[in-house]
Write a protein that binds this DNA or RNA. Structure first.
Lengths: 212, 212
DNA sequence: GATAGTATAATTGTATACAATAATAAGAGT
DNA sequence: ACTCTTATTATTGTATACAATTATACTATC
């Protein structure tokens, strides 16, 4: 197995499989068989099964007689996801503007600065990483587990489609600029501005993502 | 163990625990220990563990050294849930209006009629059941797994707080009337009307639920 | 050659055994 | 009596063994 950040094997297996499904490494329709995963990762069936049950709960896989069928995220799913995000991101950002602390603001700024740095290096993998982190932080700083649990999974599921956007230099640059506007609104503790900024960002993101 | 609708023991354990947490049978902060559940339900640890991992994935419980702490749904969670629903239900209903089939419409009407029947009998448990089914059907008929997976968990989590609403005769009657308006809009395949009707219903539901 | 029925093998579902870890209790020293 | 250390116990994490189910392959019959 790979990394050891998350203690249990079951957690590691889950993250590995989730990532491989969301990145498209496992194709839609592919059948996952417990023992194959066990052999690939060198663990027993117990942690693999627990990971699979969690993936099932997230509708990333579904039962299929023998094995589990990979569902992944279709282009139609993507459209729905972006429609939901258009309706929710503003609320999350407005709440974050009302509640964000100075330390949290600092963490957000560091993420933003890093994203700008990677932009100058044309390092799209890290740009994408910082992009995801920025949004995850906004969800977190909205200080609502409901918002976090609802929006983070939606955001994660866009991952595979976001790749193209981020590899487009011009879009990546605009995206970082939009993040900065969001950050400024949060720093000013201005809920309305934050809502408007993130709505604009989400609309642009939708446009570019759906084109692909 | 109880019923046998869902084949595997793991599924049954999950539904039982989820229901007991959402209904408040397990108090917030309570510690769940695997073996106790095993003894209560007469099954081994394997299905119990799989159920617990799924509950964790839904943030209904969280790690706590020994055992899992029951999180349940707080009054603050409830406010967030209703805010998110206010922003999403309209989209779900509008989509359903565009896509609902005649059979689906019939199923929805049967649910609505049953709810009215139980209303005359003052059978609040069944009223609640039909209320939940009505909304679940709307999510389903929106024909988007993203909508379904996002809204159904939010709706489920209101369960415990909806009880009071439904036991209030006047509110229960108004709620059924609002359902009827939603149904009529769907039957007319009128997305805008459906959106307006469900928004109105959700606003009223929020008012009454938050009072409690 | 097609089809139904049966045997075989592969896969999942469940229980249990073992290992590792963390909490609690007991005991020694001050 | 208090605190630190150590032993014990309880609980979770992981692997494996067994049971039940379901798909696949084979054979017999038409």
């Amino acid at each position: 197995m790979l990394e050891h950040k998350n203690h249990t094997l079951a957690d590691q297996v889950f993250e590995r499989l989730e990532s491989d499904i969301l990145s498209g490494k496992y194709a839609r329709g592919e059948i996952l068989v417990e023992m194959e995963i066990c052999q690939d990762l060198g663990v027993s069936r117990t942690p693999v099964r627990e990971a699979l049950r969690r993936l099932q709960q997230e509708h990333l896989v579904e039962e299929h007689g023998k094995g589990l069928k990979v569902l992944g995220v279709t282009h139609e799913d993507l459209e729905d996801i972006m429609e939901l995000r258009l309706r929710l991101e503003g609320y999350a950002a407005a709440r974050a503007a009302e509640r964000i602390t100075d330390e949290q603001l600092k963490e957000l700024k560091e993420t933003l600065d890093l994203q700008e740095f990677y932009l100058t290096k044309h390092d799209s993998d890290h740009i994408k990483g910082m992009d995801s982190k920025f949004h995850e932080l906004v969800y977190k700083f909205s200080d609502s587990v409901v918002i976090y649990d609802t929006l983070l999974p939606l955001h994660k599921k866009v991952q595979r489609y976001r790749k193209r956007s981020v590899e487009n230099d011009s879009r990546a640059a605009h995206s970082v600029e939009e993040h900065r506007v969001i950050y400024e609104a949060l720093a000013a503790r201005d809920p309305k501005a934050a809502e408007a900024a993130i709505l604009n960002h989400t609309q642009n993101a939708k446009k570019h993502i759906m084109k692909g």
